[in-house]
Design a protein around this nucleic acid. Structure first.
Lengths: 249, 249
DNA sequence: AGATCGCTATTTGTCTGACTAAATAGCCAA
DNA sequence: TTGGCTATTTAGTCAGACAAATAGCGATCT
């Protein structure tokens, strides 16, 4: 009866490359609705039967979507009570997918500020550790990333990927697995904030000199210098983003 | 035929208060197996039919468990290929559940060290921010937590909970949501490392003076002092844990 | 020989509908 | 008023069928 998904009847987006399976799409749809405040913490979702019917999917696909959201701390299910949106402090805000959902609907300035503050805490410390522990292969990948970033500029997808690569490799070079976990989060933050900046004003500043200073300090095995250089880099990025958001320049 | 779960036929633990539903239990069982290295990254799990039969659960329950693991980045499913364990750097190591799974089978010393290093980066910075931004309610909760911790000692569950409460509230008082997310991770780290310490030696040191120094600095709105006090606190905790693990004392 | 196209087998993905178990609310009796 | 029982609602679990995707293979063409 509702087998074929003809054009136009989809209540949820399934087009993007990510989340091409139904359960992923539903999770994304609901996830975006939750983090954007469309559902408030404490709200109870419609029961599984109604919800799955509204979305025109089977109950099992809907349930798998809910399991995904529950795994990320966004909802909590109990018999009789239903599925309710959990308090914000339980959300896995640093999960790459949750982060992506946040940026799908203009995140609040406060949230962006928090993300930068986190980068400001983590990345300088990571750069210092990386200066002590990086191996030659990591150094080489950082260099290549910066060269790529330099030639492609941040206006291209390749250039942005190189930027993320650089920051990723710094985190990796700390040799600290839990810390490295933050790379996907920080990488996502870098990506989305770059998009933000690009959207509002064009080519805010040449980011290369600051990046090279970080690289040079890590290559020279100078932790304090690396920390300071990274502090400056993130600080300037914060300023740029703030200026892009706040039109009072 | 396999309706009733009689005593002794369970292949997976379902007793604990958490993960009382089947999908949660299976997720935990597999999650522990993965993070403990029983399955290596790149390994492919048996197909859903075989796996669910082995575990004596329905395919749908097994699939929901896999969705949970996938949401935490531990596995990746694709038709024809199957479900494979992903690379370590994709794992959400800071997810509270994943962390719990780690500590269910003696985690490596390296992992513990990484966790402390992360605390050493995040918590002093958080204490400094908290000193600037805390409100009276948060201050009061910190004070109450420390009083509770003092009277109950870390040997009791209540005392440990109070310890976690204190660290939680410091994170919360930064007013930074993404940063606060780390509290469940850091809280878990605190909890498990406390267990570790208690297991190996008794009452390593009176932790109260260091805690009160952090509190006083935050109460006095002195960021630098708070940062230094927290640095010392975490540093001493690290030393204690290291001594508990490394018997060369 | 090599590349390319298309088939097929395998695996996850989706659907349906029924039954189970848990938790709550409300009623009824003490 | 209180305490416990019961009815109801909800998620949870199960079973089996069919659909979609794709890796790998084999046939075909160049």
């Amino acid at each position: 009866m509702r087998k074929k998904n003809k054009a136009g009847d989809g209540e949820f987006a399934r087009e993007g490359l990510a989340g091409s399976r139904i359960h992923g799409s539903i999770a994304r749809t609901l996830g975006v609705a939750i983090v954007s405040g469309q559902y408030a913490p404490g709200d109870i979702l419609n029961n599984e039967i109604d919800s799955s019917e509204q979305l025109q999917v089977s109950r099992s696909a809907y349930r798998e979507a809910i399991r995904i959201l529950a795994a990320k701390g966004l909802v909590e299910s109990r018999p009789k009570t239903g599925t309710r949106v959990t308090d914000r402090h339980r959300w896995s805000l640093l999960d790459p997918e949750v982060l992506a959902w946040f940026f799908e609907s203009e995140p609040s300035e406060e949230f962006l500020k928090g993300l930068y503050e986190l980068r400001m805490i983590v990345e300088p410390a990571a750069a210092a550790l990386a200066a002590e522990r990086r191996d030659d292969g990591q150094l080489e990948r950082m260099r290549k990333a910066l060269i790529q970033m330099e030639s492609q500029t941040l206006a291209t997808e390749a250039g942005q990927a190189a930027d993320r690569d650089f920051h990723d490799t710094v985190l990796e070079a700390t040799g600290n697995a839990p810390l490295f976990t933050l790379s996907s989060s920080i990488g996502a933050a870098v990506r989305w904030t770059t998009i933000f900046k690009q959207r509002k004003r064009e080519l805010p500043r040449d980011p290369m000199p600051d990046h090279w200073k970080v690289f040079d300090a890590i290559a020279a095995a100078r932790p304090d210098q690396a920390r300071q250089a990274m502090e400056k880099l993130v600080g300037l990025a914060l300023e740029d983003t703030r200026a892009a958001i706040d039109p009072k320049d």
